[in-house]
Nucleic acid binder design. Structure first.
Lengths: 339, 339
DNA sequence: TGTTAGCACTCTAAGCCGTTGAGTGCTAAC
DNA sequence: GTTAGCACTCAACGGCTTAGAGTGCTAACA
């Protein structure tokens, strides 16, 4: 039996099977296709075609008297067709999620994760790439009640971080501003790394309040630590429970446990660097997600740097819709973070 | 048949049954008690006692040939004994969780939720009470690259909120500080409500950059909105999957759905106002949590105000351990937030 | 009077059919 | 190349049986 090659009809039938399976999560029989999709053909004809498709490796049978289920190879074909198609449509209401609170990078990232998970009803991943060589732009002390002050550091990229430190009770707003000015003058343009080195040296000297110097060094260290490594945020983690693939609590637990391991998630997101990536089932390399696919889209953040947004859901997911959602959120992110 | 009254031995047996059930989640038989807990008594004797306890309403039988399961009344007795006992021990390593990042109130709350869920392996709730009448203490603009500035508002209670706003490109650090000083002078001591009213009035006038005024008003509005209502944070929500009570995905989903409804959670936390509260099963009034108990502990936050920390877990939970964990985290919170 | 051994009884959980129905593969006719 | 028809397979389901856990009761004992 020569395995026949794909022709247009086979492709149509395969697509119909995938579409139906995505909808129902149940093996698809020849009658279903004959009645719902290819009404001009009888179920027997569909059976012959399905048999060929099975031989070509596009369909699998859970058991002999069940319908057919798309294989990884089938999804691959399906997705590749999608990706090579014309421009992806853009889910338009994505922007609405960002209407209000655009504050810091972290907020934007969290909002994005929430937006994606709500739009798609799957688990969302958002990756923020590391930012090396952050340089101090401004440093300021804001007076607070009771001998405290809020230390704010702003970097050249616009990242903001603050912390509360103790200062002498007799420093008023003007005094704190004077210190801020002086420190900004000295530290502007330095990398976080340099700031720490400089201040650790100073701190034994006299001069300004030692606690201020220490506070600055600590905050710089913290900022560096947080920004020197890619971070990934998860949204809608328990959406997975909505899908019959994970109606077994054990499987669901294993899945959720993987979501806690940020480095494994990183591997999923830091794909080829292409605009879109789709990893299907075993391609993810994560056994606990054998029934899942990971769809990712890149977004620009400033010069050259790239982040990624993604979705984890059952292999049978409406890839088209997911891709447009990611496309939309990715664009909004590029826009917000490239300013 | 007169229902006998409780005596010391009945109480011991009941406690043994509860302890065993907490451990195993399986109906407890008379043999188990006779061998593991009351080794001097035969199973027949235990059976007689258990029969009495059942008649008194402390034990239930899933079916006639199964062991006994503690009733709500039994848990109540067990817990009340616990609560009226001597001082609760304090889980000592709770403080370790707060070692590093003590920044804003929100951070503390989130950390607390995480700490509780990790210590107990249950779902944690942390309630932060509303703060009416917040008054502005300081207001400051920190220069940022490219015609932006970071607007920071600090209240008399030490709450901090910031937002990025656009300002004229030609305002340097000193100019921004001058504006900050002026605005602080005018707004210090005003409630957030008043600030908004004043600024909405101004904004049509000339004077300072209109966008600054608008930014301040917006931020004040946001702060007020956030602080005017009790908020509740959830940690470790999917810990529930660890327990056989929720090995059914449907039940687990319903449970997780309730966790999203903050107002229902509020009802659980805003209990009697006692130091500790335990709601057992149906006492929670949440049908989706019929197999759960809610344990809460209050903590002080500033003058008079009270927040609450809590745990949601299966009715058969080690109440003693949970109470000490909550006690410990509550104390740390009181300490951190009363400063 | 309280404790215990013994025994009959009950009821779930687990395994074992037989049946049903969906869906296939193959063949023969169009 | 398409289709009707038919034999065949296999999971899912319900009914049945069995094994085992645990009870309640009774009678004997200290």
């Amino acid at each position: 039996m020569d395995a026949e090659h794909m022709d247009a009809r086979k492709e149509r039938i395969l697509k119909a099977i995938i579409d139906d399976y995505i909808l129902t999560a149940m093996p698809v029989g020849s009658r279903t296709i004959s009645r719902k999709y290819e009404t001009t053909l009888s179920s027997a004809t569909i059976r012959n075609e399905m048999s060929d498709l099975a031989e070509l490796g596009y369909l699998a049978q859970p058991h002999v008297s069940a319908g057919r289920v798309p294989s990884v190879k089938a999804y691959r074909l399906y997705v590749d067709a999608l990706l090579s198609g014309e421009e992806l449509p853009m889910d338009e209401n994505a922007r609405a999620y960002f209407a209000e609170r655009v504050r810091q990078m972290e907020d934007v990232i969290t909002t994005a994760a929430q937006a994606i998970s709500e739009i798609t009803r799957y688990t969302a991943l958002v990756m923020m790439p590391k930012q090396l060589e952050l340089r101090v732009a401004t440093l300021q002390l804001v007076p607070m009640p009771k001998g405290s002050a809020l230390l704010v550091i702003v970097t050249d990229t616009g990242a903001i971080r603050d912390t509360v430190i103790k200062v002498s009770e007799n420093l008023d707003g003007d005094a704190l501003y004077a210190i801020s000015r002086m420190m900004t003058e000295r530290l502007r343009g330095r990398t976080l790394q340099e700031v720490q080195e400089m201040l650790r040296g100073y701190s034994h000297q006299a001069g300004a309040d030692g606690r201020v110097l220490e506070g600055i060094a600590d905050l710089a260290a913290q900022m560096e630590k947080q920004s020197a490594t890619d971070t990934v945020t998860v949204g809608g983690s328990h959406n997975i429970l909505n899908y019959p693939e994970y109606s077994d609590v054990e499987k669901a637990r294993a899945f959720l446990a993987v979501l806690e391991e940020k480095d494994r998630l990183m591997d999923l997101l830091s794909g080829s660097g292409a605009a879109f990536t789709v990893l299907i089932g075993p391609e993810t390399g994560v056994p606990e997600m054998a029934d899942c696919s990971v769809v990712t889209a890149g977004y620009r953040v400033g010069a050259g740097h790239r982040g990624a947004v993604g979705v984890i859901g059952p292999t049978r997911m409406p890839y088209g819709k997911v891709l447009s959602a990611l496309n939309a959120v990715g664009s909004v992110l590029s826009e917000l973070l490239s300013e």
